[in-house]
Computed example of a mutant assay.
Amino acid sequence: MNREQISKLAHTHHPIKSPLNDDSVSSLLAKALPRGDERVLDLGCGSAEWLLRALATHPDVHAEGVDISESDLEEARQRAVRLGVDARLTLHHQKAEDFTSPHPFDLILCVGSTHALGGLLPTLEAARDHLAPGGRVLIGDGFWERTPTPEAIEVLGDFADLSTTVDRITAAGWTPVQGHTSTRQELDDYEWSNWGTLADWALDHPTHPDSPQVLDWATTRRTEWLRTYRATWGFATLLLRPTPA
Rank of each mutant, 00 (worst) to 15 (best):
S7P: 01
E75W: 12
L238D: 09
L215P: 01
D86W: 07
L238V: 10
L198Y: 04
D200N: 05
L240F: 09
A116G: 06
V66C: 13
T181H: 02
R221W: 14
A132C: 10
A199F: 12
N194T: 02
H14R: 03
N2P: 15
T219V: 13
L198V: 09
L109Y: 07
L239W: 08
L121M: 14
D86T: 07
N2D: 15
A132E: 04
Q178S: 15
T100M: 06
D37W: 02
W50L: 11
D86V: 05
V81Y: 05
G134L: 01
Y190L: 07
Q178F: 15
L226M: 08
P15V: 10
H93E: 05
R128C: 12
T149L: 14
G134D: 09
A202D: 07
T123R: 07
S113N: 15
H62Q: 12
E145L: 11
H13S: 06
A10C: 13
V25Q: 05
H130C: 10
H92L: 03
R227F: 11
R39K: 11
A231S: 12
L91D: 00
L33E: 06
R221I: 06
V85D: 09
T90R: 05
P133L: 04
A63E: 04
S69K: 05
Y229R: 01
T147V: 05
T197I: 10
H205L: 14
S71Y: 00
W174S: 02
H130G: 06
T232K: 01
G196A: 10
H11R: 08
L28F: 11
S211Q: 04
L131Q: 01
R136N: 12
Y229V: 05
P104D: 02
V85A: 06
G36E: 11
T170N: 02
A56F: 09
D204Y: 13
L117S: 05
A132R: 02
E75C: 06
S47Y: 12
V214G: 03
P242S: 00
K95L: 10
L187Y: 07
L33I: 12
L91W: 03
T164C: 13
A171F: 13
A126M: 12
L51C: 06
H11T: 03
P242Y: 05
S69N: 07
S69P: 14
G135S: 10
V166S: 02
Q5Y: 12
D141W: 05
G119K: 00
V40S: 01
R136Y: 04
L121G: 00
L29D: 10
R128H: 15
R79P: 11
N2Q: 09
S71V: 13
P150T: 08
I6M: 15
T223L: 09
P148I: 05
A172Y: 11
K95G: 01
G196H: 01
D210R: 00
H92D: 01
R39M: 01
H58C: 08
Q78F: 13
L239T: 04
W195F: 10
E145I: 08
S69G: 11
C45K: 07
S7K: 09
P19Y: 04
L20H: 11
H180P: 06
L51E: 01
Q178H: 15
R88C: 15
W201I: 07
Q78A: 14
V166K: 06
L138H: 00
T12L: 15
V61Q: 03
